[in-house]
Amino acid sequence: MLIAIKKQLKPQYLIAHVILLGGGLILVYPLVFMFMASLFTKNEYNTSAIGLLPIAKHPTLSNLKLLFFSSVDKQTSYLYVNSIYRTLYATFFAVLTSLLGGYAFARLRFKGNGVLFMALLATQMIPGVIGLLPTYLELYRFPFAGGNHIFTGGKGLFDTWWVYILLNGGSIYILGVFLVKQALESVPRELDEAAKVDGASTIRLIFQILMPLQKPVLAYIAIKVSIDTWNDWAVPFFYTNNSKLQTLASGLSKLTAFAGAPGSTANYPRMISISLLLTVPSVLLFFIFQKLIVQGLANSGVKG
């Protein structure tokens, strides 16, 4: 033990400790600041100088409480609920399509299996922003929806729940399919055959026999998709207008768009509180499942 400690005190290790800890503290600092600043009341925030480490004289959780219970800010709890629903919906479908798609590409022999898979992977190279505007056009001009004739007339699916239902729904989640396929290839095929001989249907084979074996990969997919969906502000920001359809991230982005202007009377503690609400769930998820996340990230890099 003593030798081990001595080893850690070697100058090169000491320098490594200092660099990693110093860098780590800088990286965590904004989150600490966010938490500290959310404890201020609006008055104190506006009248006192906010230092690098703001410490409120009368720390209060009233900002958070107001966000959920005051009639003015009632919208925030609405945003929270929308964010949760959207995240759960997207996560469910991402896991489902990854499992089924991974099974199909890893196990089934059909013409064009390899070509189709490579084609799907290749689309991952296209920058995502390119689809942003055409998707808007498609939603807006969606045939026979929202007062549209064939292509024109109304607003189509723009600004409706269909935006989330379609964009976060059962479309194939390509990264997940890739990971599940990789993982399934290390499971012997004999297992499938044995199950089939015992009379298991394909559905039972996938969900009762293969799914439990793929838990780590599926959990990684679930966490990645839920954090990404939770943090995504662009889809609600660009494809919806109605305040009832916003999520927490897009609500905050609409709020902050005007706050930076000089002389604005923005309520910074309130904004910081919303930021905190937005940050805490994803950070918590990361803390709980960090082993899986690190492993999954490594897998998608090393094998890819």
Binding site: L20, L21, G23, G24, L25, L27, V28, P30, L31, F33, M34, A37, I50, I227, W230, N231, W233, A249, L252, S253, T256, A259, G260, Y268, M271, I272, I274, S275, L276, L278, T279, S282, V283, L285, F286, F287, Q290, I293, V294
Partner: peptide, 22 residues
Amino acid sequence: YRTMWYVPVVTSTVATTQVLII
């Protein structure tokens, strides 16, 4: 250390840019 270095990745851009602006 690994946790500390990775935390920023999972945070929301909208929320954390706000801190920098302040």
